[in-house]
Design a protein around this nucleic acid. Sequence first.
DNA 1: GTCTGTGAATCCTTTCACAGCT
DNA 2: AGCTGTGAAAGGATTCACAGAC
Lengths: 251, 251
Amino acid sequence: MATGRTHRPATRSRGIPEATVARLPLYLRALTALSERSVPTVSSEELAAAAGVNSAKLRKDFSYLGSYGTRGVGYDVEYLVYQISRELGLTQDWPVVIVGIGNLGAALANYGGFASRGFRVAALIDADPAMAGKPVAGIPVQHSDELEKIIEENGVSIGVIATPAGAAQPVCDRLVAAGVTSILNFAPTVLTVPDGVDVRKVDLSIELQILAFHEQRKAGEEAAAEAGAVPPAPEESGKGPDGDVPAVMPA
Amino acid sequence: MATGRTHRPATRSRGIPEATVARLPLYLRALTALSERSVPTVSSEELAAAAGVNSAKLRKDFSYLGSYGTRGVGYDVEYLVYQISRELGLTQDWPVVIVGIGNLGAALANYGGFASRGFRVAALIDADPAMAGKPVAGIPVQHSDELEKIIEENGVSIGVIATPAGAAQPVCDRLVAAGVTSILNFAPTVLTVPDGVDVRKVDLSIELQILAFHEQRKAGEEAAAEAGAVPPAPEESGKGPDGDVPAVMPA
DNA sequence: GTCTGTGAATCCTTTCACAGCT
DNA sequence: AGCTGTGAAAGGATTCACAGAC
């Protein structure tokens, strides 16, 4: 995953592992659901189940944030919601812009999960002049000529790129030049950014491909159970894709 | 080795680490781009740069697939495209169904990255009778009553869920009952599935939250660099002028 | 007795660095 | 020379298991 440099080697105060950070939103969602049902406290076991992880991991994760639980009782739901929100920076308002209002951009603009978590769609931007002024999710689309102005006037530091692949890097460059320091990229391209800028990538087809890999292996196991299946082994001799045999290396 | 601590018994890999599998689609995309430019061979250094990883990692990843490179030369682009495609299972045709044809479902239906990688949208399914028959991305939407029939007739084993959160689990259950064994879930819910079924989750707001975390930290570092270090631990107070404040009630 | 918080052990991933092939 | 393939080392993440608070 493309992550900018988190320079500052001596993180004496709070070094929350990336893996933990990535799970905090999961916990937060589960906690929010409990909160809406007015559940006062929850055990690590229950919360872990609701978030889809195991309890040891959850407790370890929370231990990086501090000691917010009560032994013999569990965690106070409201208090934890607040602590995690604060840790994630969601107690403040994050204006974001979405660039590229095609199908995906429109879906993102309409996505309720943003507004409910401290994110505010400050502007929708598209390169197509015909889109300008047209409202999407109640927000008028603006032409990309305005990009820099919009970023500066709204103090936007997070940009979402939902353009076609070819437009992504130029858009990215302009966003960064205008002051954006975090980018969520939906375009199927590797973005190049300067140090200090974070990029996260969501690629719809990559996830499907990973599923296909496992799916294929399931089918292969079934077949292999009946006969010894050996796929084609082109030129190269030696290892190749065979059964469980790892790479060989005689001494 | 092969210790008896199989967290996922049904998903025993052929020796290719998950982390590597997750990167194969990246390599494949970079290679496809090279292939289209008729580049015959590529070094690990070049390919790694194009895929956004470092070369040692790439070579290690490829070593799990077999010895497909030539020392002193690099990798044959076409050959590697074929090998990775085969490894990912993309040399076969994967019919998929998309359930929930809202903004996101429509975006997915229109997404070109599927068709070009062995995935074929076999059907679009929505619970709204008003959608039935309406074409999206050239494919007529079918009502969810037809779900089981569609799955079976098309031999679908991969399902994409793009419904609202509340509908996701019931839809998932029906998909699984009908024979689907891999699910890509865009709904913000933790899905419960029987053993042997793979679920991958894509959550748009989670990615943004992770960005917000890092963004917040950057802001804190800047402030700390300019003035004396002041840890950002504010009490619940007035947010922004137009803040839409998440429900937090600190004890 | 219940449940959290956490060192220690285990497992997985990345990086290093160089042997060995072309 | 140039570049891959891979053991070995280093670094993270996960799980274990239990001390200690309630």
